[in-house]
Amino acid sequence: MEVWLIRHGVTGHNKNGFWQGQRDVPLAPEGVEQARRLAIRLERLGLTWTALYTSDLSRAVRTAEILGERLGLVPRRDRRLREVCVGELSGLSREQVRQRYAEYVASSLRDPWHTRFPGGETLAELSERVWSFLRELGGGRYLVVSHGGAIRTAVLRVLGGEGAVPWRIRLENTSITRLHWPEGVRGEGFINTVGDAAHLEPAWKPEE
């Protein structure tokens, strides 16, 4: 089984440094273009896809729709692929969080995996729901559109790095992270690629 995890296209909150979590923020025009470039790149590969799944938040759904239109796939929505719920931090800037939630920030630096976002989830809870989705997939090659936090926890799960700081894994919007479970292999799988965003490089030619 091979899973290609795609981070959704960029949003206004991403560009301006605001926490999103499960707030339903739409793609920015730049995010639509990012998804279009990724769709062209994936089409050129000529691969066969078993299915296309997406988080049910609109920024992920729209990214998946753009991919699906070009690849001939209908996105299937699954709430487990949502971003972590950041609760009271949603819509705040990083500076506002540092000023208003100093205790949370200090705790998250000591234990990022189990510190609960104020009024929200922990990263451990996020990891469990994402992993419950991945465990249900059968053999095949899947496209899965999700979110930065969700993809980072999946990477750390494969590496056995639960408890590490996930934000040190850099994932551009619409980047590709590939997880692989060879036939007959059990366990947490392998990582082929993390954060591949070659289609966003200025030298990459999206012309059809």
Rank of each mutant, 00 (worst) to 15 (best):
W131G: 11
A203L: 10
V3N: 06
E136R: 08
W4C: 00
C85H: 04
A64S: 00
Q20V: 04
P75C: 14
E103Q: 08
V158G: 05
D78M: 11
R152E: 08
S132R: 12
V144R: 07
R157E: 11
T153E: 10
L47E: 09
L57I: 07
V158Q: 13
E43G: 02
S107A: 14
Q20E: 12
H147L: 14
R100F: 02
G139L: 06
V25K: 04
P118R: 03
R129Y: 02
L38R: 00
R70N: 07
L73N: 00
H114K: 15
F18Y: 11
R7K: 15
W181Y: 05
R82T: 01
E125V: 09
P118Q: 11
L71W: 02
G148D: 01
E65F: 12
G91V: 00
Q20M: 14
H147A: 13
T174N: 09
E121F: 09
P75K: 11
R70M: 10
V3Q: 06
L179N: 04
L126Q: 06
R186I: 00
R36Q: 15
E208N: 13
E128K: 08
A150M: 11
A198R: 07
E201W: 10
V145T: 08
S55T: 00
E201K: 10
V185W: 06
E208F: 15
G187W: 05
Q99V: 09
G195A: 09
E2G: 01
E33W: 07
R94N: 10
S107Y: 03
G149I: 00
V158H: 08
E125L: 10
M1H: 12
W19R: 07
V194S: 07
W19P: 01
L47R: 10
W204T: 12
V74A: 14
R23N: 03
S127A: 15
P202D: 05
E172A: 15
R76A: 15
R186H: 05
V185E: 14
A106L: 13
A154F: 05
I6T: 02
G21M: 03
D24K: 02
A154K: 03
S132Y: 02
L89H: 03
A197H: 11
A124M: 07
L134V: 13
V32H: 03
E183I: 02
E30V: 07
G140N: 10
R135D: 12
L27S: 08
A197C: 08
R76D: 04
L52C: 01
L38H: 01
V3L: 06
R186N: 11
E33H: 09
E128G: 01
H8S: 12
